[in-house]
Design a protein around this nucleic acid. Structure first.
Lengths: 108, 108
DNA sequence: ACTGGTACACGGTATCACCGAGTAGTGGAA
DNA sequence: TTCCACTACTCGGTGATACCGTGTACCAGT
């Protein structure tokens, strides 16, 4: 699949929120997880910028823990604001995806 | 529905391509059409920047015709490159939307 | 003459994903 | 023991995109 970056704008952050929402996890592992899920070209730098933004916007709670496999890890967990944001993300996603799918039916 | 602009990045252009692909149409009417489809906050300025970009990228054929209702209209029609681009857009959309829906199932 | 609807153009802005380079810790191979 | 690979995070800068605001212009009705 060729370049998806433009289409991921606005959605990748939501995907990261969703991943954090389902388990306490750290940045490097989030990147691996996204790659497994089919977002193969998403790289660490991108994920870290999102994580720093989430932290700055007060959507996550961060805990630093030693690793054993390398440098210490920053574990992320959603707080109330984060869960609210995640909910809003899915509402937006549903709103848009329904309308786009409908547009497609109307004469491809 | 609150602000959708970030999530529309990368997809709105595809929507415009789809609309042009299904009928020969001009900018002002495309904006109305998008509004009807539920993209209520999309305004003329946005659509025109997309149309100018499509033209610049050689994806559309443009015909100017007098209106009777106001200034002359620029009618757009997809050429071969445009149809190819539209096809690529839907392939990307399918790729991403399937994966995002799957991510959502895995523990909301 | 004035207002409102139609129709397009354009410079500037914010946001986002991405890139590249850097810093650092651990463990295995040479 | 030295080097490399993997793990793990940071940060300044880039390019693409939708949006905003303003301007131009044509036409119809009042």
């Amino acid at each position: 699949m060729d370049d998806l970056t433009e289409m991921l704008k606005g959605t990748l952050e939501g995907c990261v929120l969703q991943i954090i929402g389902s388990e306490e996890i750290y940045g490097y592992a989030i990147t691996r997880r996204l790659n497994e899920l089919g977002f193969v070209d998403v790289v660490e730098g991108t994920v870290y910028t999102i994580l720093l933004r989430l932290e700055k916007n007060g959507l996550v709670q961060v805990t630093k823990r030693p690793s054993g496999q390398g440098p210490p890890r920053k574990f992320y967990r959603l707080n109330d604001a984060g869960r609210k944001e995640l909910k809003a993300f899915w509402a937006k996603w549903e709103y848009i995806s329904i309308r786009i799918d409908k547009l497609r039916e109307g004469g491809e």
